[in-house]
Design a protein around this nucleic acid. Structure first.
Length: 224
DNA sequence: GGCCAGGACACCA
DNA sequence: TGGTGTCATGGC
């Protein structure tokens, strides 16, 4: 149920190879440290990355992109610094909640999160207010390096364009769609999702311009 | 000036 | 359980 058609793991690998051919090794999450990845994952909620990058750069310039420095900052002082990322009051509180969690559970060290199973870490993160499925999975995969496939707006858009998803399936269902077909490999999940985002940014816009899409012959919307 | 962007959550029926 | 409103900036 859910998927419009029933692609096999071979289909997903074929799409991946096609994307790799176009974009190369994405080697991707735009963050310089695992800690930055966590902060970025929260700031990018429903926000374009360019706006997030402005906020991260601001924090970086002030030397605030570390647990110790950021934890010393109350949300009321963090909020204006992340203004460009939108929803800044909400996000300041969410960053704070994450920092409290990180301190309580992992002594403030993101690296220590990698020491437990992906599913267990995900469940813990989901208990943090302001961290939902996508943000939790982004942290698990891109900061902790554990194998969970990240589902985001790009994932839904690209694969619904391909006719392989409706696009409105529940998050966990879309995640299973990928994880049941791909081997549990964090590097694969990382790069696959990165490729999807690159394609989504590049051609699979809401108003599609599919003329340059490397998946043309797979895409029912070709020529739209 | 309107639309869109790598969500999460409270509230309501 | 599903639908809706809220949070907000910046680029095009």
């Amino acid at each position: 149920m859910g998927a419009v058609s029933s692609p096999t793991s071979r289909d997903l690998r074929r799409i991946y190879r096609r994307l790799r051919r176009r974009f190369g090794d994405a080697g991707w999450w735009p963050g310089e440290t695992p800690f930055e990845v966590c902060v970025g994952a929260i700031l990018t909620q429903n926000t374009s990355w360019s706006n997030v990058e402005k906020a991260l750069s601001r924090l970086r310039r002030r030397g605030l992109l570390s647990f110790a420095r950021l934890a010393a900052l109350p949300p009321s002082r963090l909020a204006p610094l992340i203004r460009s990322s939108g929803y800044y009051n909400v996000k300041a509180r969410r960053v704070r909640a994450f920092l409290d969690f990180l301190e309580a559970q992992y002594r403030g060290r993101v690296e220590e999160m990698a020491g437990e199973p992906a599913a267990a870490l995900r469940a813990r993160l989901l208990a943090v207010p302001g961290i939902g499925r996508e943000t939790a999975d982004s942290i698990v995969l891109y900061a902790a390096g554990l194998p969970l496939f990240v589902v985001d707006a790009y994932t839904r858009r690209v694969f619904s364009r391909l006719g392989l998803l409706r696009g409105d399936e529940p998050y966990d269902e879309v995640q299973r769609f990928f994880m049941e077909k791909l081997r549990p490999d964090a590097r694969l999940y990382n790069d696959y999702h990165a490729q999807i985002v690159l394609l989504g940014k590049d051609v699979c816009r809401p108003r599609p311009r599919c003329d340059r899409c490397p998946l043309d012959d797979l895409c029912p919307k070709r020529g739209v």
